[in-house]
Design a protein around this nucleic acid. Sequence first.
DNA 1: CCGCTCGCTGCACACTGTGCAAGCTTGCTC
DNA 2: GAGCAAGCTTGCACAGTGTGCAGCGAGCGG
Lengths: 200, 200
Amino acid sequence: MTERGLRERKKADTRAALAAATLRLAIELGWENVTVEAVAAAADVSYRTFFNHFSAKEEALLFPAGTDQPRLSARLRAQPAGTGVLAAARTALHADLTELEADAAALRDRITVVAGNPSLLPRLVEIGAADEREVAVAIAERTGQDAETDLYPGLLAAVLSAAVRVTFSRWHVQRGAVPLTTLLDEALDALAAGLPEPPH
Amino acid sequence: MTERGLRERKKADTRAALAAATLRLAIELGWENVTVEAVAAAADVSYRTFFNHFSAKEEALLFPAGTDQPRLSARLRAQPAGTGVLAAARTALHADLTELEADAAALRDRITVVAGNPSLLPRLVEIGAADEREVAVAIAERTGQDAETDLYPGLLAAVLSAAVRVTFSRWHVQRGAVPLTTLLDEALDALAAGLPEPPH
DNA sequence: CCGCTCGCTGCACACTGTGCAAGCTTGCTC
DNA sequence: GAGCAAGCTTGCACAGTGTGCAGCGAGCGG
């Protein structure tokens, strides 16, 4: 399933080379100075080939592995039916973040680029929270509600997305000193406590 | 301060005409079929003039009044120092949403366009939550914390942003039957209660 | 009334993203 | 192993976005 032949392996290599070149050039030159032409040249393929692998420049930076990998909604559905929504979400998010933290160097570089280019920030959320809409549906399935009309599923999905975003930000500021999962737990605990105002 | 002369009035008219034409064409043709050239033609100005008023196509749709209007962070700072952060945020958000709901028809059209084009969704958040970063700083000032390192300010700002986004979504689904402020209160109450899982 | 300011306009340009029609390598079949 | 289909790569043309620059003309101040 991982490699079915030389052709697919070469294709994956090309995609990886393009993604790596994109990230490297973004760090070296700044995101706005990265052109698709330069990326293609750095990866030794033609300009046109870039768009055979990525539909847009941002995709090469933020979705180097492709969009068909297991997403948060899938992980959430995989949790046993007995557990509560919040606990299930916490477990699913842990799995997601652990996987991302596996190549921490690339993740840090990516966040660095995004931090310097706010226009990319929304897309980063998609990495962590995948398709927030799907997550809302998965939550609705678990609570027996309707994702369209009821408040809870959409709100929880959006709030989880926000928690992940904040977690990425803090992880980056602390230069990865604390694991993503630990930081996420802090955020989720604060949420579960109803966001009580801390003493000052 | 509102109008200082014929020239400024004409400029504001041009901007308003461009914004209105953008919204109208987006509803009629779909966002992806709206070209700047068509918008400029509909507003009876040249192509180049469009970019003298808006730095990008999305800005004409989402920030028709300009980005220098009073933002959420300013409203938040304007709240009396005695009140708690959550209460202050609620009041500030009420003011913001009430103002937006004043021209409900345009707001509904805008949300319709955004709902059909997820790529625009992140920008809509900016309308409601303004600059989330500034809000985080304002929260930090109120709690005597540091917006960079402490969890609370950034988390609360992100969560408020999420609540506003969900509120817009529900308002749109219900076709504006319930005021924005009422829907926002429901979301904030759920958050303050720690997002307890509803019975199913 | 004269000059200055400033919005509007046209032109040229770099870049993104897409459709189409090739060419060439891979992998499968006979 | 020869051929054939599939599909990755490539070049070309094109629509559209966004920017820099220079000129024009109407509003504004002295």
